[in-house]
Design a protein around this nucleic acid. Structure first.
Lengths: 142, 142
DNA sequence: ATGGATGCAAAGTGTTTGCAGCCAG
DNA sequence: CTGGCTGCAAACACTTTGCATCCAT
């Protein structure tokens, strides 16, 4: 992706567009479906940029989340996963292959996912996920 | 609660009813609303039973979860919380006071919470929670 | 030259594991 | 007597922190 555009995305949120941050954002944007962990992100970028420290990856991802550029998924006690899509949407977590993927057809309406208040409590985020075994793993084991 | 009844609950699930396990189950059942962490459970029971080890609490809770006597809630990267209610139900997590409580009126129907399959994937559990600031904390800060 | 960002290592937190001793069946 | 459970400490995985260095303004 165009580096200029990435820079602008960061600056638009008041984040200084350093080389590391641009790289991490770029990688994240190529991974809208896979919800990579901090470690995966570190491994991929570190291989092209051996000076990158893992702490920088964590710091950067936290910065992104705080500024609304990414969202973090905490599923079933697994490692945190990062998603460049910040709109709430349901996920499926496969306990066999550990993949996390989006579910398009969950019988939950947007009204619920975008609730801002419930029983007097103020809502920041609505998290919905299904835990089970994915189609592919079901096939393999049968 | 009646110790005999607790023993029977454990035996019915094929769990040997040791003293520690009975105590932990008893405490859990008094806490259907508060969703205690392993540490809270440890602190409370350890104070009446100083030989209890934390590892035993973790082992026991894992045993309970594996046998369907309790469920575990993993919320937003916080510590695991345990719930003697195994039926799926939505929760609210307050980022200020860190309480986790049940939400009765979430606009999600039981059909969704009890889904067993979606897009070809087999579902074990449906997790729904809201993250935000609770009524009480809103009052305090205003 | 000033403040923020990075790299590195160390610390921290929550959880699991290995193993010896113990208890109940 | 035997297997499973407990207690303890050490190991573990993931994440955060402290600090010196570096870089861009």
């Amino acid at each position: 992706m165009d580096v200029e555009k990435l820079k602008q995305m960061l600056e638009a949120k008041g984040i200084r567009p350093t080389f590391q941050r641009i790289k991490i954002l770029e990688y994240l944007l190529t991974q809208k479906e896979t919800h990579p962990t901090a470690d995966e992100i570190y491994e991929v970028i570190h291989s092209q940029m051996p000076t990158l420290a893992k702490a920088t990856v964590y710091n950067t991802l936290n910065t992104f989340v705080r500024h609304g550029i990414a969202s973090v998924l905490m599923i079933s006690g697994e490692e945190a996963r990062y998603d460049p899509v910040v709109e709430p949407h349901p996920h499926f977590f496969c306990v066999k292959c550990k993949r996390v993927f989006n579910i398009q057809s969950a019988p939950i309406d947007d009204k619920c996912l975008n609730l801002k208040e419930i029983e007097g409590n103020k809502i920041f985020e609505v998290h919905v996920y299904f835990r089970g075994i994915c189609k592919e793993c079901l096939k393999k084991s049968s």
